[in-house]
């Protein structure tokens, strides 16, 4: 009797040790990646790095200002396209759950999540870049917005589905029209979930490289015209990392570091927003 209990306790402990061990094995590489980027990247960072354009090989002190501006612009335009589309689609899906349209929308959203980003890049290249006659920031933004849509739609739909129906009825019973009920009662009640979905989708596409290579292409100069090619952080990392020059490698590390910090920052904002605007039913 005593021995079996001891054996069970031993198994309990063993189980605990195993899950702790596996979690460590899983987390360690992530931390190592972060460590490497921080170590290599931080030495590239200084004021010049943020305000200078990349310099030709051999000259020191090049920066990534074109890529920074490019990434911000690309993501801004992509958000302007995808947020209204995604949020309104999410509203439709949570409001009309059993229609054919919502069935096919959900299906395509799920499939879209799994489409490799390079495929999206190629398609946007064929449809937008070719028709417009050249690489442009707007085509890059379209590619990014396609990648943002699924997570915005999903997070909106799932957040709104959890909002009690009685809230909608309360509003309707006050004589509030349907559209105002959705915009002024339902959306505000779900704002935290929707916002965090949006921010996370931005964090996700901030590092997308493949679709941008075919669309925004890259630009060694500062560009704010969305109809012209534009640089971006992931593109600069890609171009510099595959180059044979030591100086450029350093820039690539620095740009990676900046990108990681941006993503980290976005995640922290999400956490804060979730805590601050928590809606209690």
């Amino acid at each position: 009797m005593v021995t079996t209990i001891k054996y069970r306790e031993f198994k309990n402990k063993l189980f605990k040790v195993i899950i702790i061990l596996l979690t460590t094995v899983c987390t360690l590489p992530l931390l190592l990646v972060l460590y490497k980027i921080f170590r290599e990247g931080i030495s590239a960072i200084n004021w010049d790095f943020f305000v200078n354009l990349p310099k030709p090989v051999g000259e020191t002190g090049g920066g990534i200002v074109n890529a920074l501006i490019g990434s911000v612009l690309l993501i801004l335009v992509a958000s302007v396209i995808s947020i209204p589309l995604g949020v309104f689609t999410g509203i439709y899906l949570s409001e009309y759950r059993n229609t054919k349209l919502s069935y096919f929308t959900l299906l395509s959203v799920d499939v879209l999540t799994g489409v490799p980003s390079i495929v999206i890049g190629i398609i946007i290249y064929l449809w937008v870049v070719k028709t417009m006659g050249g690489f442009s920031a707007i085509s890059g933004s379209i590619a990014l917005s396609v990648m943002m849509l699924p997570s915005i739609i999903k997070s909106t739909e799932e957040t709104l589905k959890l909002i009690p129906n009685t809230l909608k009825e309360a509003s309707l019973s006050l004589g509030v029209p349907y559209y105002r009920t959705i915009l002024k009662v339902i959306l505000p009640a779900g704002i935290t979930g929707i916002l965090s979905g949006i921010i996370l989708s931005i964090a996700r596409v901030a590092g997308e490289t493949a679709p941008l290579l075919f669309t925004a292409f890259g630009n060694p100069f500062i560009n704010t015209n969305i109809l012209k090619p534009i640089s971006s952080l992931p593109a600069i990392i890609f171009n510099y990392a595959i180059s044979p020059y030591e100086d450029w490698h350093k820039l690539a590390w620095g740009a990676s570091f900046v990108l990681i910090i941006i993503v980290l920052f976005l995640n922290i904002i999400t956490k804060i927003a979730q805590r601050k605007w928590k809606v209690q039913f």
Binding site: P164, L167, E169, A170, V185, A189, I191
Partner: peptide
């Protein structure tokens, strides 16, 4: 809308607007 302003309703579970 006129009808629902004329006729108020209170539900089984209290449902104040959470925001």
């Amino acid at each position: 809308i006129v009808l629902r302003r004329k006729i108020g309703m209170v539900f089984q579970h209290p449902n104040p607007f959470p925001t």
